[in-house]
Amino acid sequence: MIAFDNVAYSYGGGELLTGITLALAPGSFHFLTGPSGAGKTTFLKLCYAALRPTGGEVRLFDRSVFALDRDGVAAARRRIGVVHQDCQFLDHLSVADNVALPLTVAGLDGQAARRDLAELLAWVGLTHRAEARPPELSGGERQRAALARAVIVSPDAILADEPTGNVDWEMSQRLLTLLLELNRMGKAVMIATHDLALIRSAKSQVQARVLRISNRRVQLAGADL
């Protein structure tokens, strides 16, 4: 699905990541940890071709990112749900319209899709905020809306950058439950997070691999997690 082969990424003369070889297979569940500035967000951006590796090769759905033109990248992104740390939205649209945006882009704006939207908004606890504008949302509500937008088209892989950074424990558990359900449906999930409690909670429910970025390399985390 998403495969890294000896990937390196350099920026401004410095090497941020190097020697990364791994694969996100269907149904896999990964956490990505590491100190701030270690390269977690850069790693995720390499996963959805927002960045291209400066060494090695990233393959998305069996195609090298170097072989993808802009339409090819767009097609790959329709199969990857991304939750950004800064949760960007179209501020002139309602929360419901923002969450439904991937459906609109994919041309799936039918009645069934609208029903999924209502269910999803209920699941992330945003039904009462459906007609609000994104600037009116709290940080936690924005993250929930971003997660709902990322999963609404049932993508093959879900990449989330600190998805529970601004939500309380109860909501983080609900979001985790949603991600676990999607994972059980065969979706690959990767969550970049500092939240060790979330990782421990997930590991009790699913066989998750925990990766740590250390010294520019991605390694399997030790037993402390």
């Binding site: 927002a50 767009a74 992104r77 945006l101």
Partner: peptide, 11 residues
């Protein structure tokens, strides 16, 4: 940027 993130093509 948002549209690209969710897979909108340039067209």
């Amino acid at each position: 940027a948002v549209l690209r993130l969710i897979g909108a093509t340039d067209a």
